[in-house]
Lab assay of single mutants.
Amino acid sequence: MATGGRRGAAAAPLLVAVAALLLGAAGHLYPGEVCPGMDIRNNLTRLHELENCSVIEGHLQILLMFKTRPEDFRDLSFPKLIMITDYLLLFRVYGLESLKDLFPNLTVIRGSRLFFNYALVIFEMVHLKELGLYNLMNITRGSVRIEKNNELCYLATIDWSRILDSVEDNYIVLNKDDNEECGDICPGTAKGKTNCPATVINGQFVERCWTHSHCQKVCPTICKSHGCTAEGLCCHSECLGNCSQPDDPTKCVACRNFYLDGRCVETCPPPYYHFQDWRCVNFSFCQDLHHKCKNSRRQGCHQYVIHNNKCIPECPSGYTMNSSNLLCTPCLGPCPKVCHLLEGEKTIDSVTSAQELRGCTVINGSLIINIRGGNNLAAELEANLGLIEEISGYLKIRRSYALVSLSFFRKLRLIRGETLEIGNYSFYALDNQNLRQLWDWSKHNLTITQGKLFFHYNPKLCLSEIHKMEEVSGTKGRQERNDIALKTNGDQASCENELLKFSYIRTSFDKI
């Protein structure tokens, strides 16, 4: 039985969820670079991206490699990797027998973001014989899940209580170790020597080791999670996991709180800001991140802002960003909400898709409305799209047979046209069989910064309504002859009103 693990408890099935942008060198404390989270699957090609990484700022997932063999891993080693800020997950990587050479110096898994409450997941690794993470000293947050690894031993010899604050939620089941077939031998045991430290858990006094050649490092209890030197002297209180010299914040392997210019500090002093819960960055760093993602459509890219001495992905609820200094300031009234469309555009074809934009005031991208039916549609669209004030790209209304009016965009005031449909149009209306009105132009103002209007096959939309939009939106004169079809717009509506004058002759039985 794995020490510190839980057996036999019912657990939810383990679901495996399925960018080499360097964020800056980590400095003297770390020998390499800070790398983003990685999802490495199918083959070993991307694994080489770990070569210079000291910190993975995010998670590391290595999974679904069915053609790899043990010899493929023999020359692979990433000794610079010290810390993973989120979680480490391995799933069905064939041929991998140990992690001792792959990650010989991995010391800390912070667990800032977890995989279903777990910071370390080893699942269905069919050839893994031992973990071998002999320098792993601290899992700051989260638990361990090690399950269905039929060859995995050296679990009962690990004292997880020396690595985690609590072992109650560890789930370590259905491994070879369960069948008591392992016969784990710690260093020196074969020669009758006791080389590794022994600890007591559940009444068992057991030597602690990761492999037959690597003991588990056990520091004096007084050192807590700070770690200790090879001689057993406690590291500085700002260290986490390990250090090369005692009581020196510049000799830590990793930091308990924050890293700044080669030393570990309790908090980031001005003019620095907390970033990702582990390091200090200056304003320029946060500003660069903001600008890199301002026009990016890459998933996970955030326009970072500053709030409460932190550089964070977005302002919290009730705050909006001051564009001059990136500071989050309290909103006066309802907060603006910028919604970034991942692929640059979004099609609204149902109430469900409209709900995804609920509360958005600025759309960074283009909207395509293609709704053919739905219950209580006008009210639903207004509830979900009615706060949109600005669209950076274009607005396209296409084959939306259920629409009679666009009044559900009740606050839309600006279409920038930074991206144009077919390279020309910022407003595009095609084949809307029941569209009769755009907006009530006596109450609604709309500016279209650039781009043209396109109207074709809107049989109940009168040309007068379209011409009014040209005047109000500032697009009059931009359109070419064929942009607004004269014969297919309003051709099934009563669009022309003329005053009919009647004269009559009164007659009676005795007068003409």
Rank of each mutant, 00 (worst) to 15 (best):
F103R: 02
R297A: 14
S244W: 14
L326W: 02
Q276E: 10
C268G: 00
G183A: 10
C228A: 02
E57Q: 12
K292L: 14
T189F: 14
R69E: 05
E124N: 03
Q216H: 11
N179K: 15
F283Y: 07
K176W: 08
C223L: 02
P187N: 06
N308T: 04
T68A: 07
D288V: 08
L99N: 00
R141Q: 12
E57V: 07
S237E: 13
K176D: 03
M38H: 11
C280P: 00
M83V: 04
C264W: 01
T157S: 07
G58P: 01
C219R: 03
G142S: 02
C286S: 02
I122S: 05
P31Y: 09
N257L: 04
Q299P: 10
N195P: 08
S237Y: 12
H59D: 02
C331L: 03
V126Q: 02
L44Y: 07
E207K: 15
R297F: 03
H302P: 10
I306Q: 01
N202I: 02
C215F: 07
P313R: 10
S213M: 15
G37S: 07
K251C: 05
S98T: 11
H127D: 06
L326V: 10
D39N: 09
K310M: 08
C243N: 00
I62M: 09
C335K: 01
D178F: 11
G232M: 11
P316S: 02
T68H: 12
C264P: 00
N282C: 01
A254L: 10
A198T: 11
N308M: 04
H214G: 05
C228E: 02
Q61Y: 01
A230M: 15
Y134A: 04
C243T: 00
C264Q: 01
M125K: 00
E151C: 07
K217A: 10
P36D: 01
D261T: 13
S213I: 11
P31N: 15
S54E: 09
V206L: 11
Q204Y: 10
C215S: 05
I84R: 00
F115Q: 03
D86F: 00
K67W: 15
S244I: 11
Y273R: 07
F116Q: 03
L29I: 15
G132P: 01
W210E: 05
E97R: 15
P316W: 03
P316Q: 10
K217P: 07
Q204N: 08
S225Y: 09
K251S: 06
F275R: 02
N309C: 03
P269N: 10
P70D: 15
K217N: 15
L327W: 11
N325S: 03
V34T: 07
R263L: 11
C186T: 04
Y304F: 13
Y94D: 07
P197H: 06
G111C: 02
I56H: 02
G188Y: 15
L99V: 08
D75A: 04
G58Q: 00
D169R: 08
V305C: 08
W210S: 04
Y273L: 07
T107V: 06
D86P: 00
G32F: 09
I222A: 10
S284V: 09
L260T: 13
N138S: 12
N170V: 09
Q216C: 04
R145F: 04
L44N: 11
N202T: 11
P334G: 08
C219E: 02
T250L: 11
N117R: 06
Y94I: 15
T107I: 15
C223P: 01
S225N: 11
L81D: 00
S54N: 11
L289R: 08
E33N: 11
L332E: 15
E33F: 01
S77V: 08
D277L: 07
M65L: 07
C153N: 01
T85W: 04
C219K: 02
H290R: 03
D165C: 09
Y273D: 01
L120C: 06
G318Q: 08
P270Y: 15
T194W: 14
D184A: 13
I139N: 01
I122E: 00
L89T: 13
G333A: 12
C35S: 00
Y87G: 01
N42W: 14
T229L: 13
A198K: 06
D159V: 03
K67M: 12
L240N: 12
D165W: 13
T229I: 10
I146W: 00
F283E: 12
G183F: 10
C223F: 05
R208Q: 03
K193C: 14
D184V: 05
N282R: 12
Y94T: 10
C228K: 02
A190D: 14
A190F: 07
C235G: 00
D178N: 13
N309T: 12
H28C: 15
Q61F: 08
H59Y: 12
D72G: 15
